[in-house]
């Protein structure tokens, strides 16, 4: 619960509301919220829900940029509400909307069914290159082998990169930046042998070639993952798979 002791400062928080049972389309609703310098946008929304309007819906959990639940458009940019502070809007007003490019379920809550289905499709787990028995010991990995994929394993599925990707907005069939970062996290792991199985997705018409290297996905990532790099490295891999199959008769995609 945010500290309600009055500092005298007020923030005008404009929230894009949408209540499917009564609204034909979303509309902006403004709230005046007292705030102190240590309050995040998430705490501002919690103040609204607790004291001004209990009907406001939004997702949140950890309050510390770990769970990836509170992604929203803040003054038009995809941000985590818990990692964005009200003090950084000196004009005294801030506009908060549901993450761009996703259908709005209600208020600031988006529908992420599409993302979850795509996540399953890329087999987001290690498919061992070689089976080892317990007696043979663990799968060893050098620091250099770890370095190749480590940043991609920091993804928290917050979807900010999807809200930053116009190609996903224009064509929701595109697997998108976050899923490609996770796909690459496993493909690039020295213990993994599932790259050709995942190529069926990466090299498909819904795959990497929908990307036009806008690069904004990597700018907005709160965990310093570089999804644009994952997508574009896999363009090269998918092109290699495309042409090599003509020579070798192999290749993952259908």
């Amino acid at each position: 619960m945010a500290d309600t002791s009055d500092t005298g400062k007020r923030m005008r928080i404009e929230v894009l509301r949408y209540r499917p049972e009564q609204d034909a389309e979303p509309f902006l609703q403004g709230y005046d919220v007292p705030y102190s310098d240590d309050m995040s946008v998430l705490q501002g929304l919690q103040y609204i829900k607790d004291w001004l309007d209990g009907t406001l819906s939004f997702r949140w959990s950890c309050r510390m940029a770990i769970c990836g639940s509170c992604g929203m458009m803040i003054d038009g940019e995809p941000r985590l509400a818990c990692k964005t502070f009200l003090r950084d809007f000196p004009a005294g007003s801030v506009r908060v909307e549901a993450l761009a490019h996703f259908p709005i379920e209600r208020d600031l809550v988006i529908r992420m069914d599409d993302f979850l289905a795509k996540l399953e499709s890329i087999k987001p787990y290690i498919i061992p290159k070689e089976a080892r028995s317990l007696a043979q010991g663990e799968y060893l990995q050098t620091p250099a082998e770890l370095d190749v994929y480590e940043q991609f394993s920091s993804c928290i599925n917050c979807l900010l990169c999807y809200a930053a990707c116009p190609q996903y907005g224009l064509n929701p069939d595109f697997v998108g930046p976050g899923i490609m970062a996770l796909l690459h996290r496993y493909n690039a792991d020295s213990r993994d042998g599932g790259a050709s199985a995942r190529m069926e997705v990466a090299g498909s018409e819904a795959g990497v070639f929908n990307c036009t290297a806008v690069g904004y996905c990597s700018e907005v990532c709160p965990k310093h993952v570089d999804p644009a790099n994952a997508v574009n490295q896999n363009k090269t891999r998918a092109a290699g798979d495309y042409f090599l199959r003509l020579v070798t008769g192999k290749g993952g995609a259908k």
Binding site: P20, P26, E77, P103, P166
Partner: peptide
């Protein structure tokens, strides 16, 4: 559930 899909028209002028 009646998910609302926002239009993309003019997206590139937003940022």
């Amino acid at each position: 559930r009646r998910p609302y899909v926002r239009p993309m028209a003019g997206w590139w002028r937003r940022n």
